[in-house]
């Protein structure tokens, strides 16, 4: 092999090396593109899976919502209009009632909304007895009793307590604790004995044992018509 052939071989080798380097760079770029395409395809698959999951989740949630609404409607349809509501306080009561807070006699169109105690469960509230229908007399009694309880003096007089009643009928005496003591008498003069409460007609009102130890008492005399005829209090 002469020198020219040697030189040609050397240059041929150099050319091949250059071509291989270019070709390897192209292949390396091709591998990068393939890897990038695979990554994009993978992320697309993941997004597609995620979208499918949320689609199914949305459908399931819609079905549950529709089912709950349907059950609610069915439960309401199964009850008669005058039946108790499922949850107390959610349905008006078509009864005559008393607005106990305002003290105003209610008409037939008035509605009483039962007030639930804190933490009271709806089931317990539902099991409560229906709203009581009160007569006008009893409503007046309640109102006057409430006023009496507010106006009861804290310092009781030492003198015998007097209470007169112009009409016949039982007189109800209410002591400090709110218990009622009834006796038929008119006019009524309360006298203090050792530990007994007596009235002028000689009637001895019944004093319950639990009240005997109470040194103080308060009472309200109310006629049979519901009129307050006397209030007072004292000490045994």
């Amino acid at each position: 092999m002469n020198n020219n052939q040697d030189i040609d071989r050397l240059f041929e080798a150099a050319r091949r090396r250059e071509a291989d380097q270019r070709r390897q760079q192209q292949l390396s770029d091709m591998i990068d593109r393939l890897a990038e395409d695979e990554r994009k395809a993978e992320s697309g698959k993941r997004k597609a899976k995620g979208g499918l999951f949320w689609t199914y989740a949305g459908i399931a949630a819609s079905v549950l919502l529709l089912a709950s609404v349907g059950l609610h409607i069915l439960s309401q349809d199964s009850n008669s209009p005058s039946s108790q509501p499922m949850i107390a306080g959610t349905k008006p009561q078509p009864t005559t009632a008393v607005d106990s807070t305002a003290g105003i006699p209610a008409t037939h169109t008035d509605v009483v909304v039962p007030v639930l105690k804190p933490h009271a469960s709806p089931i317990l509230a539902q099991s409560e007895s229906p709203v009581e229908v009160q007569s006008p007399e009893s409503r007046q009694d309640e109102i006057e009793e409430k006023e009496t309880a507010i106006e009861t003096p804290t310092v009781l007089p030492d003198e015998p307590l007097l209470a007169e009643e112009t009409e016949t009928g039982n007189v109800r005496t209410e002591n400090e604790t709110g218990s009622n003591i009834s006796h038929p008498a008119s006019p009524i003069v309360y006298e203090r004995t050792s530990s007994r409460l007596v009235c002028g007609s000689g009637c001895r009102p019944e004093v319950r044992p639990s009240q005997e130890n109470s040194p103080r008492f308060a009472f309200t005399n109310i006629s049979s018509t519901g009129t307050t005829i006397g209030i007072g209090g004292g000490e045994f």
Partner: peptide, 13 residues
């Protein structure tokens, strides 16, 4: 390998 050697020889020359 021969091609690589030839290319390297040319670089030296």
């Amino acid at each position: 390998e021969e091609t690589r050697n030839d290319a390297a020889l040319l670089d030296r020359l």
